[in-house]
Amino acid sequence: NIFRLLGDLSHLASIFILLHKIQTSRSCRGISFKTQVLYVVVFCTRYLDLLTFQLHSFYNTIMKIFFIGSSVYILYLMRIRFRPTNDPSIDTFRIEYLLGPCAVLSLIFNYGYNWIEIPWSFSIFLESVAILPQLFMLQRTGEAEAITTHYIAALGAYRALYIPNWIYRYLTETNGVDAIAVVAGIVQTGLYVDFGYIYFTKVLQGQKFELPA
């Protein structure tokens, strides 16, 4: 369906925007390393089904491999290649407070007690909050380069598009609703609302991304 496809393309776009930003400016300034670590954890725990070789579709498999590979590559760029441009002193969100509750939630809410379903559920909860260190960093610095805001906006668009995708699927399929993914997805989209408002009213009007004092 079109919403799902546009959502996935938007997700892909966000990764290319981030890579472009790091490589053209030769700097990862303004990007939260912690958020990027969380995305690696999210992808690695969600796509454990790759190891079973009972793959859903060619499209899914390629995308999963791309998401794992690109997120690890971004960590390499931030930690090794452009390490001096990464300032840990403003990236101070405590990710333990995200990992712990997500682990507990995944043990309570999951579709089966096994080595695929529990990590899958964990990854869904973790993805919903993985952007928080990035948004927190943005709030601390109070401003951001336009390209960094495009990256976050593309991620927000990807999440927003998954909502009409679920509505469409609910209306056209008889499989029922994936409650865990939908609830966590709505929470995740909600986290972008504030950012999205400033993005639309400032960055897209040609102004600098600056938080009101």
Binding site: R46, Q54, H56, M63, K64, V177, D178
Partner: peptide
């Protein structure tokens, strides 16, 4: 539910 058929979203 969707889960029984494997997770088909990314």
């Amino acid at each position: 539910p969707l889960a029984q058929e494997g997770h088909d979203e990314l």
